[in-house]
Design a protein around this nucleic acid. Structure first.
Lengths: 189, 189
DNA sequence: AAACGGCGGAACGCAACCGTTACGTCGTAG
DNA sequence: CTACGACGTAACGGTTGCGTTCCGCCGTTT
């Protein structure tokens, strides 16, 4: 029986290595070194780097974020933005996610995995949020959930994970107000 | 005197290699192979992989995009979005940019260079656009150019370079309408 | 008490790449 | 016609990582 403490140590080491050197430079030997285990312990669990990383990020990202439902679209939006911005401000996450996203452009398996654990979930959140808002009459019926998701997540991702600019206290408020305005009035087909 | 055709061949090879394997895995030997030159020709020009890449991306990105000025904010916005979306749909650009962005998180020199060639320019564009629009009375005076830039570039970058979803004919129109609405009415402090 | 199995460590042969050097070729400037 | 200098090729010793194998240790199971 594989020892669980060893598995956990490896998992943590992989996340740290991913953050530090990225997928491209990640090496099994470095993971073993950092985890304080032998290479054999790793090869006993996975047969290569890709399989190992895919399994681990699936496991980590699998912890679903609860869908917000505060009763109003504005409330949902604020909450969602708070959750996302918190997540993207975690040091490890903000290093690993853009790195894997870039890697996904060349590796179909990584792309598929990320799509599964991130994009699908986002889409669900977006559709639910927009659907509820339309049902309540807070948004026009022809609001495009696709555009809405891009409008909500794009600026945050851009700011936090790409430009890496700090956000002030009022930034989230301004942003959510802007998004709200854009969807409410003018995202017509 | 260093031969210019060789320099150009190397430059192209670096860009292709960056797109294909990313900065992390880029090797001098692979660049030389692809360019059909000897390693010596490369080391005669630069002393490092980092130095080489920095010089080349600076050169490439240095070709400035002209600031749009169509006479109306809506027109400027449409034009800017068209330019950016075109750029982000180029295969090589959409591979290299996210990769270098991710790498920038670990390498201060890359971060600085990208900041110089991308962020600074964006900021200038954003400030000019918003400034003009305010002067014309098309946007409220307290519009935050920072938020505006994020709102304009974020969704496009997210969609094209991160999620890598194709955009339909009407997507840009919808998006620009949404951004316009958000800035015009509700990005108040 | 004995057998089993996961463990770390060490070493294996192999491949890629580093940055440097020596050499011979070839085009061009003088 | 000569000298120079950039070029490609090849080889250098050294490092890193691959994936595999063998070993001895040690806790658990039986």
């Amino acid at each position: 029986m594989l020892r669980n403490d060893i598995t956990v140590a490896i998992r943590n080491a992989v996340m740290s290595e991913l953050a530090e050197v990225g997928y491209g430079r990640l090496s099994i030997e470095a993971v073993a070194r950092r985890a304080g285990v032998g290479k054999t312990a790793i090869y006993r669990r996975w047969s290569n780097k890709l399989e190992m990383v895919l399994e681990i990020i699936t496991e980590v990202a699998g912890r679903k974020v609860p869908l917000p439902d505060t009763g109003s679209f504005a409330g949902d939006l604020d909450l969602l933005m708070m959750i996302v911005s918190k997540a993207l401000q975690h040091r490890v996450a903000s290093q690993i996610i853009p790195d894997l996203m870039a890697e996904a452009a060349r590796n179909p398996q990584i792309a598929e995995t990320l799509q599964k654990v991130l994009r699908t979930h986002q889409q669900a959140v977006g559709e639910k949020l927009v659907g509820q808002a339309i049902a309540r009459g807070e948004l026009p019926e022809n609001t495009d959930p696709d555009v809405a998701v891009d409008l909500i997540l794009g600026p945050l991702y851009w700011r936090l994970a790409v430009a890496r600019q700090p956000i002030g206290d009022d930034y989230l408020e301004k942003l959510s107000a802007a998004v709200l305005g854009s969807l409410r009035g003018d995202a017509k087909k």
